[in-house]
């Protein structure tokens, strides 16, 4: 029994050693697989970080441009409404003048006057376009506001991200870095040029312009 028991003990130790070796082999195998994986992961991070950085900057630039676009939409709406009402006022005056004119004319001419008034009235009806356009612009404005809200939310989330690891902190620092590099400066200049507001109503009157040519 002792012999047999000793054999059993030796067998168990042997098995245990084999087991340990197998474990080490597995670990080494995992290590062999994990190194290329980690290398690939870091390469991926290296490629992705500039894109994330650019996305973050675009988010900030876009957020700054959206209120201007929204204001411009409201300006267009107000200007169109004002112009529409001016047209209506003028048509009203024309209609009144035609009524006065009709009082002194015979029936055959009155018919012509009525026709002209009818045409004026159809112009007034055509001005419904202002309300329809205004509603479409208002819809576009709502879309811009929704995008702006989403941008702001994303921006806030990026700013609030809590990173506990060193590498994580460095990644976030890189993505959220505010100092623009040359490429970004150039890109920002291009965007600003493309979206420049060239309509500056009321900044200079015609007399002042004429004086420059005297």
């Amino acid at each position: 029994m002792t012999h047999s028991g000793g054999y059993m003990d030796n067998s168990t130790n042997f098995d245990s050693v084999i087991e340990k070796i197998e474990e080490m082999r597995d670990f080494l195998k995992i290590g062999d697989e994990i190194v290329p994986f980690l290398t690939e992961l870091f390469t991926f991070m290296k490629d992705v970080m500039p894109i994330m950085k650019e996305a973050n900057h675009s988010l900030q630039d876009g957020s700054q441009k959206l209120p201007t676009a929204s204001d411009r939409i409201r300006d267009v709406d107000q200007t169109t409404e004002m112009a529409t009402h001016e047209i209506m006022d003028k048509l009203g005056i024309i209609s009144d003048k035609l009524d006065n004119l009709a009082e002194d004319l015979d029936d055959s001419k009155t018919e012509v006057i009525e026709d002209i008034k009818e045409e004026a009235n159809s112009i007034i009806f055509s001005l419904q376009f202002q309300d329809i356009t205004a509603q479409k612009l208002e819809h576009a404005d709502r879309i811009l506001n929704a995008i702006r809200k989403k941008f702001r939310k994303l921006s806030d989330r990026i700013a609030k991200v809590q990173i506990d690891t060193e590498i994580g902190k460095k990644i976030m620092q890189e993505i959220t870095e505010d100092e623009p590099d040359e490429a970004r400066k150039k890109e920002m200049d291009e965007i600003n040029k493309e979206t420049e507001d060239v309509i500056r109503e009321g900044n200079i009157d015609q007399d002042d312009i004429d004086k420059l040519f005297d």
Binding site: E81, H85, M88, D131
Partner: peptide
Amino acid sequence: VDDSPTMRRIMVNSLKKI
């Protein structure tokens, strides 16, 4: 009832004509 002043003017004009 309309929030657009333009439409309200068009309506006044049209309803008076009717």
